Simulated assay, not measured.
Amino acid sequence: MLACLIAMLLIPGPVRLTQRLDESSSVTSDGSQHIASPDYRLGPGDVIDVAVFNTSNLAQTLRVSSSGSITMPFLGKVAVSGLTGDELEIELASRLKDSGLVRDPQVSVFIREFNSQPVFVLGAVRLPGQYVITQPLQLVQVLAMAGGLDPIRAADYMQFQRRGKAGAAAPVNLTDELQGENVRRIDLKKLLELGEEELDLPVQGGDVIFVPERPVSMFYVVGEVNHPGAFQLPDEGDLLLSQALAQAGGPMKTAKIGKGMLVRYDEHGRRQEVAVNFSDILRGKKPDLTVQRDDVIFIPGSNFKTIGYGLLGTIPGTVSGTVIYGASRGAR
């Protein structure tokens, strides 16, 4: 079952999760259709239809108040928060019978609008926002409702916060990591790739799911290459200078690859210049260095032999508006 749901996360767009065929269909306040589970528990903001067989004057459409109650004719205020539709039918039938209003009451309760059980899916997912749950769901199912992870931006973990009450307001900041109590960090690789079911937690109203954006490390290749610009370092594994040159489309015919230069900034922001002979590297005569974050690789040639250093003086500002290329994961 979990494997099937994980596969849903790869489908572009939201996934509507349904229940058994005998469950009643209803809508949320935004007009979207949902499937009502018998286990759904009422809360503030929900709208219900109450009907009593052969007693039309007791038929009502009612909204659950902020205090979690409804007001019925002849019965007054009735606490309904936390009850299922079936439990409310039994409660109303008992009160009608005890009051002597109806000898053998047959009560039906239909949930017209689901509004009391919102969950918030934020961060690097395809469709972040607020979702109303109408049935018991797990983390993977809720991620599927939000269209799945954004494969480019999503980090390798997510945060899950139980806020304690379904009526909690939406988080104000949708980009910062969650703070406070009841925040749990969940490894997405273990959850989605390895299928560790103990991480697939049950979700209830008021919960917040946040997928952070993974930090992006860049390097730059300029000069006489076919595709100069900014490039993304791989998340895993090292990237070598020769591989960086290949990602930039390789050298142009006029390039002087024996006179390359690596510009690297230390932890204090000081620039260091290292001569790089790509001809020797490709022949195995010199070691192929590992590219680091914010490195600038310069390949001189007939077009850039005089203005190359001018470009280096403005890196990374000069290339910040160029196309950003992503390095594949696990590059070697």
Rank of each mutant, 00 (worst) to 15 (best):
H268V: 00
E267W: 15
A59E: 06
L282I: 05
A7N: 07
I297E: 03
A124P: 02
F210S: 06
K256V: 02
N226S: 06
L62N: 05
E198G: 11
L245H: 09
T61Y: 03
S65T: 04
H34C: 13
T71N: 08
L282E: 10
G43N: 02
T71L: 12
G85P: 01
V323F: 05
E273D: 12
D86R: 15
C4T: 12
D150R: 01
E87Q: 10
V52G: 00
K305A: 11
I186M: 04
E87I: 02
G205F: 01
L241F: 06
G82M: 02
L96C: 00
L191I: 06
T314G: 14
Y325P: 01
L178D: 01
Q159I: 04
R20Q: 14
Q130L: 02
Q232T: 09
A79S: 15
D200L: 09
A7S: 06
L101Y: 15
R95A: 05
F160S: 05
Y220H: 15
V211K: 04
T84Q: 15
L233V: 07
R329E: 07
A246G: 15
D86H: 06
M72W: 13
Q138V: 15
K285F: 02
L282P: 05
F231S: 05
D266P: 00
L92S: 00
A327H: 13
D280E: 14
F120R: 03
A327E: 05
R270A: 14
L241S: 09
I297G: 01
Q19G: 12
V15N: 14
P105F: 04
G123P: 02
R153Q: 04
V221I: 14
V27K: 06
G260V: 04
A327F: 09
S32Y: 13
P12A: 03
Y265F: 09
E89V: 02
V107A: 03
Q292V: 07
Y131F: 06
G206F: 11
P316A: 05
P73H: 05
Q117K: 14
Q141K: 05
G223C: 01
S65N: 03
S99A: 15
P251T: 14
P287H: 03
I90Q: 09
S67A: 15
P128N: 07
A155E: 08
K165A: 15
N277H: 03
D280T: 15
V225H: 06
G308N: 12
G250E: 12
N115G: 01
G148Q: 00
M218H: 10
A36I: 05
S66E: 15
F231I: 04
T254W: 10
T18V: 12
I11N: 03
R329F: 08
R41L: 13
M8Q: 14
A146C: 00
M145S: 01
V183F: 11
D39A: 12
F219V: 11
L191M: 11
R126N: 07
A230Q: 09
D104L: 13
A255Q: 01
L199H: 08
D46N: 04
D30I: 15
E273S: 06
D200C: 13
P228G: 06
L188C: 13
P287C: 04
V80I: 09
E236L: 09
